[in-house]
């Protein structure tokens, strides 16, 4: 390297501390006011017996102690984890498939637009819509099934199908959005690399495993980590379609938090449960980043 530019560059870097602060300032204000302060308040409230309407009284780690032995809490955690396993793998595979279709089968931007449409509906409307479509008595899907002479399928009202059905509803809403991000990642794969493999006689499967997947890894990591975080916080769909039932088949952690906080007035307890969820999410995300070597590149 030549000397003068480097020096000058360093000079410009020295000014960056102050400059960086200026650039960060607006977001820092928002971050402190609407994220950090409430989070700290949350930590404080999780150590109290706040009943939502009264004054919170400090109880130390009592809430956490109780949660550790609360069967309902761990059961709802288990249901949530099951839900994540129904939701994420299928959604990711579908999104990957759709992205490949967008890239290889039809480049039509109309197709890309259509795939995104479910995401334009609010959560609540999506949940109500599917509740309506899946109804065992008057839903169009079961009416059709019955007109073929079969028994109606109890999508949301049997303990086996309720959780996968809810996962299906959310996959329907999110797959286009997820596919689009994966599609964006596909655009970054240099054509020449794949061309070369093709000339070497690599099969489509080999090309997919050896070239496409490694190139997509950072994007997939982003998609999977953010969707897992969202998936753990499933609430609207459950609250509208099954309210946790049948029995406890769909009693997810957010429902536990909401019911304890707003219906049983155990806000301190509910906040402590949220904090444990937060810690679990941190752990899960950290693990995912490690496994997927999210911050490294293969090339």
């Amino acid at each position: 390297m030549r000397e003068t530019p480097n020096k000058r560059k360093r000079k410009s870097l020295d000014k960056q501390g102050a400059g960086a602060l200026l650039f960060l300032l607006p977001s820092l204000i928002g971050f402190a006011a609407f994220f950090i302060v409430p989070a700290l308040r949350g930590i404080f409230l999780s150590l109290t017996d706040w009943d939502l309407l009264g004054k919170p009284g400090f109880v130390g780690l009592e809430n956490y102690g109780k949660l550790l032995t609360d069967e309902e809490f761990w059961n709802s955690m288990l249901v949530t984890v099951k839900y994540v396993f129904w939701n994420i793998p299928l959604q990711t595979v579908l999104a990957l498939g759709i992205a490949l279709v967008m890239d290889r089968v039809t480049k039509s931007s109309v197709f890309r637009g259509i795939i995104l449409i479910p995401w334009l509906l609010p959560n609540v409307v999506v949940a109500l819509l599917w509740l309506w479509l899946l109804d065992p008595a008057v839903g169009v899907i079961n009416s059709t099934v019955q007109s073929w002479g079969m028994k109606p399928i109890n999508f949301l009202t049997s303990t086996e199908l309720a959780l996968p059905s809810i996962a299906g509803i959310n996959i329907w809403r999110h797959m286009g959005y997820t596919a689009l991000i994966v599609f964006a990642g596909l655009q970054g794969i240099p054509r020449e690399v794949e061309e070369a493999a093709l000339i070497d006689g690599a099969s489509p499967w080999t090309r997919f495993i050896r070239i496409i997947l490694p190139y997509l890894r950072p994007v997939l990591a982003f998609v999977i980590i953010t969707s897992v975080i969202g998936s753990f916080q499933i609430y609207d769909t459950v609250a509208i379609t099954t309210r946790g039932g049948p029995i406890t088949a769909t009693y997810v952690i957010y429902l536990f938090i909401f019911k304890n906080g707003f219906e049983s007035y155990l806000m301190g307890y509910a906040t402590a449960a949220s904090m444990i969820l937060f810690l679990i999410l941190m752990g899960v995300s950290f693990l995912q980043m490690r496994i997927m070597r999210a911050s490294e590149s293969d090339f």
């Binding site: 509740l131 109804d135 065992p136 008595a137 008057v138 109606p152 109890n154 949301l156 009202t157 049997s158 379609t241 099954t242 039932g245 049948p246």
Partner: peptide, 19 residues
Amino acid sequence: LAPYEMTANNANPLFTSRQ
């Protein structure tokens, strides 16, 4: 009596749809 699976969400659609 209509089975639980058909009425878990709400029973009145069965009535209005003559089921």
